[in-house]
Write a protein that binds this DNA or RNA. Sequence first.
DNA 1: GCCACCGGTGGC
DNA 2: GCCACCGGTGGC
Length: 259
Amino acid sequence: MQSHPEETFRMVKKEADSCTDSCYTGHLQSTLQEPIEVSSSNKDHSHDIGDIDDQSIEDSSKQLVLYDPAANRAGQIEHVPQPTQYQHPFGRYSDPNVPSRVLPSVGAFTIQCAKCFKWRLIPTKKKYEELREHILEEPFFCETARAWRPDISCDDPADITQDGSRLWAIDKPNIAQPPPGWQRLLRIRGEGSTKFADVYYQSPSGKRLRSMVEVQKYLTEHPEYMTCGVTLSQFSFQIPKPLQENYVRKRRAPNISFI
DNA sequence: GCCACCGGTGGC
DNA sequence: GCCACCGGTGGC
């Protein structure tokens, strides 16, 4: 895969007690992770991903975590468990009678320390987005987490590890924070989809936009945003990449027909 | 009728 | 192979 920094994030469900809203974890070489929006839209953040629509799948199979390939190479992070070890995001946890429409959602945001390579949970999506925006120029260290955990250091155990119980994904670094009042939403698709996830931006008025083309058009039609300084550079539709191989279905080879 | 979600594809 | 974009539609 690529050799430059990438982010992965995983969705974490509960378990991350410190995470009050959806969080992802991720890191880049130095680390970063991005927040991903998890679960159903209108839910508040009082629960994280976990409670997606129905009962929750308490397990962590939906956690999304970010990781850094560079660190992987260094052997700091164990490799992704075999696919078979991963549970299908839905399925096994859901009641067979419940049509499982439960999609994985981001349970936690994590970023890897650039020094000790331990994963640190980022308490909020907002914080995660702030850190991600400049992760390349300003690497994350355990000390960075002192802003919300005064005594944390590299000597403390990792907040989370890649143990195969969660879905991890690598986030992209240096994605701009959304403009004030806007939200960047990440929806994870179900396993076997043709795409891992979708990014949407939601304007302050609630309008959802799903591509740069739509953003451009919307801004043109609502010049007040541009007047306030909103620009296209504040938008990015880059999606994280799942660590689990084959989470995304490959494009099928065309059928060969013969006579 | 709306829209969240998924599939497909053109262009690179 | 990846990704940006957008059409279609099932479920509400």
